[in-house]
Nucleic acid binder design. Structure first.
Length: 411
RNA sequence: GCGGGCAUAGCUCAGUUGGCAGAGCGCCAGGUUGUGGUCUUGGAUGUCACGGGUUCGAGUCCCGUUGCUCGCCCCA
């Protein structure tokens, strides 16, 4: 067992795994397109500053989890840990802040140096939707509705619930922060070490803690809702009204927070009960401050990201492998003629295969093994008459079909 | 970063008080040179994760290492 293994936290997608993965991505791509999102393909690595600037110098992702290295020219490069920062950078780099709104769909691998476990990998894949430009709550609701529809199309929505919260605007957060600091300072003894650090830097993140001994304390913490400014409260109310119109069920959860300053207003997570502590399957929110952080003009935006591997795991049934037609020649002379038939089937859009060796029996076994739906059997007798025997491998029925008619017969 | 479990054929796994390295599936070939799924005969395939120790003898017992995996933290 000294063979090379995949690098820790990576995995190969082959066979059923590939089909699940592809189905998730393709479903998301099609639904996003229906909502008017265009796909952008941005680089997998970026200047490190793209992420250190936007994810905050103190976040776990930046301090512990990034794949960062100096390239041969001495520039600091980072494998993207998430998609949003790169999309905002692309928006600014390409001068697209002048042609808003932009509705962006993006998918691909992301990288985080973490301890792998079920539903968590070092190289994983996300689908990502960003709606950049509108400041209206309708945009938030539309993004969430698009996400919900993807979950529904995948059939993974039944054990999944949208948990919704608001982070308010800057004045709301300032007032709330004071209240939180007062509450947790008074209960300092009950806090974990991590949470004590958060109390200094980012008190809202304490609400995110899943530490068992802090659960009661967090449940008793003040909620943001009473601290919302009238404007922020109105925004939040509009989002909920629109969600109802889009038909997206949700539950309010004051524990859904984001630690960074450029997040505001809507924050949400779709959580499944089926994946344990890796239950967040799709998450997002409004980040009106991020584009300016990247050097662009102040630009409102809202978006979401979903983990492809987690969604793929939730699929009850894997998409089936495609069933080909097997071309089965008997003898060398027939094989020569069969190549033409093989190509005519392919030209007609039919998945067609011919084995590379073997007698009739072996080739029929092979056809069965690849789950062929039909076999086109071609012997010298048939060839002389200008026909092939076309056998339906599901029913076992077989009939002679004129060579030029085979593709149409199998379509 | 912390804790638990596991490691034997391509895959899933057995392997008794320490005594010849095994099964099923898969693969290859034959029974059957014009018909698959069923049946049948034969065949190939191992650094028993790695290193050390105990022993006449270790897949089995002991120690260490590595890898995988599940959970915590965090996240998609």
């Amino acid at each position: 067992m000294t063979d090379l293994q995949p690098a820790r936290g990576t995995h190969d997608l082959i066979g059923e795994d590939q089909r699940r993965h592809h189905h998730v991505v393709e479903t998301a791509r099609q639904i996003a397109a229906r909502y008017g999102f265009d796909e952008w393909i941005t680089p997998i690595f970026e200047d490190t500053r793209v992420f250190s600037r936007t994810l905050g110098e103190t976040s776990d992702v930046v301090t512990k989890e990034m794949y960062t290295f100096d390239d041969r020219g001495g520039d600091s490069i980072t494998l993207r840990p998430e998609a949003t920062a790169g999309i905002c950078r692309a928006l600014v780099s390409n001068g697209l802040t002048q042609s808003l709104p932009k509705k962006v769909f993006c998918t691909g691998p992301m990288f985080r140096y973490e301890r792998p476990q079920k539903g968590r990998y070092r190289q994983f894949h996300q689908i990502d939707i960003e709606l950049i430009g509108p400041s209206e709550p309708l945009a938030d609701a539309e993004v969430i509705a698009c996400g919900w529809e993807i979950l529904k199309a995948l059939g993974v929505h039944t054990d999944t619930l949208l948990e919704l919260n608001t982070l308010g605007d800057a004045p709301s957060r300032a007032a709330y922060r004071e209240a939180l600091v007062a509450y947790f300072t008074a209960n300092k003894d009950a806090l974990s070490n991590d949470s004590l650090v958060r109390l200094e830097r980012n008190p809202m993140r304490i609400l995110d803690s899943k530490e068992a001994r802090e659960r009661d304390l967090i449940a008793g913490a003040p909620k943001i809702w009473p601290y919302l400014s009238p404007e922020a409260a109105a925004f939040y109310g509009k989002v909920q009204e629109h969600l109802a119109r889009f038909g997206v069920p949700f539950r309010e959860n004051a524990g859904i927070v984001r630690g960074l300053d450029y997040y505001g207003h809507t924050a949400f997570e779709f959580v499944t009960s089926k994946l344990g502590s890796q239950g967040t399957v799709m998450a997002g929110g409004r980040y009106d401050g991020l584009v300016s952080e990247m050097g662009g003009p102040a630009t409102p935006a809202v978006g979401l990201a979903a983990g492809v591997e987690r969604l793929a795991m939730l699929l009850d049934v894997a998409p089936p492998a495609p069933a080909p037609v097997a071309v089965v020649p008997i003898g060398d002379e027939a094989e020569a003629a069969a190549i033409g038939i093989l190509q005519s089937l392919r030209a007609a859009g039919i998945r067609a295969e011919m084995a590379y060796r073997g007698n009739l029996r072996r080739r029929m076994e092979r056809a069965n093994k690849i789950d062929a739906r039909a076999a086109v059997i071609l012997g010298t007798d048939d060839l002389a008459q200008g026909v092939a025997q076309v056998k339906d491998l599901r029913t076992g029925t077989q009939e002679a079909v004129k060579l030029p008619d085979i593709a149409a017969y199998l379509t």
